[in-house]
């Protein structure tokens, strides 16, 4: 397995020539995920069609990602991997599949693959919701977790800003005290 600097050759290939990049015209559903750890964001678009047996299949998928090399590569790979998958199969998708497909990720970057999987879950959630379908309990729980994490990111960002402000205030207060 070839390594190019920090990443495997596969990662670099996906990073340099991402597959399925951009928006799909009239997507059936969109999943948005933000990485709680580093702040990367991803949008995943899917088109769903019924096959002859009447099962709902992910016919097409595409992505848009603001993030590091690992985030872009995992986004690209997941769109490849989910195309042609039945929705209920896609719900069993594991991030290890992405890491394997990329011949591995640096340990500190494995969390990036969570971003892609979360975006997939969110897209399926969005699809079920739009189609007014019953949302499986597992998916509902995942959605709640992602929602909570998005809130936490917002909170964390606010705290970062607040800390700055407080530091300034403290200095100004000390100034006025003297």
């Amino acid at each position: 397995m070839k390594q190019i600097g920090l990443y495997t050759k596969k990662v670099i290939e996906h990073f340099q020539k991402p597959h399925n990049m951009g928006k799909i015209k009239n997507p059936d559903a969109v999943g948005q995920a933000g990485n709680i750890i580093c702040g990367d964001t991803m949008q995943l678009y899917i088109k769903v069609k019924k096959n002859k047996q009447g099962r709902e299949i992910i016919k097409d998928a595409s992505f848009e990602t603001l993030g590091c090399v690992a985030a872009i590569a995992t986004s690209s790979v997941i769109t490849d991997l989910i195309k042609g998958k039945a929705l209920e199969k896609a719900l069993e998708f594991d991030k290890a599949e992405i890491v394997k497909e990329l011949d591995g990720l640096p340990p500190v970057k494995v969390h990036c693959s969570v971003l892609a999987v979360d975006a997939l879950y969110e897209a399926i959630y969005d699809y079920f919701k739009k189609k007014k379908k019953k949302i499986p309990e597992k998916l509902s729980k995942i959605h709640q977790r992602i929602k909570k994490e998005k809130k936490e990111i917002k909170k964390r960002y606010k705290e970062w800003e607040k800390n700055e402000e407080e530091m300034y205030k403290k200095i100004i207060n000390e100034k006025t005290k003297k």
Binding site: I4, I12, F15, Q16, D40, L66, C68, V69, A71, I72
Partner: peptide, 13 residues
């Protein structure tokens, strides 16, 4: 609208 690690790795390539 870009992330720094991506810039650095792309420049490195």
């Amino acid at each position: 609208f870009v992330e720094g690690e991506s810039i650095v790795i792309q420049l490195d390539l």
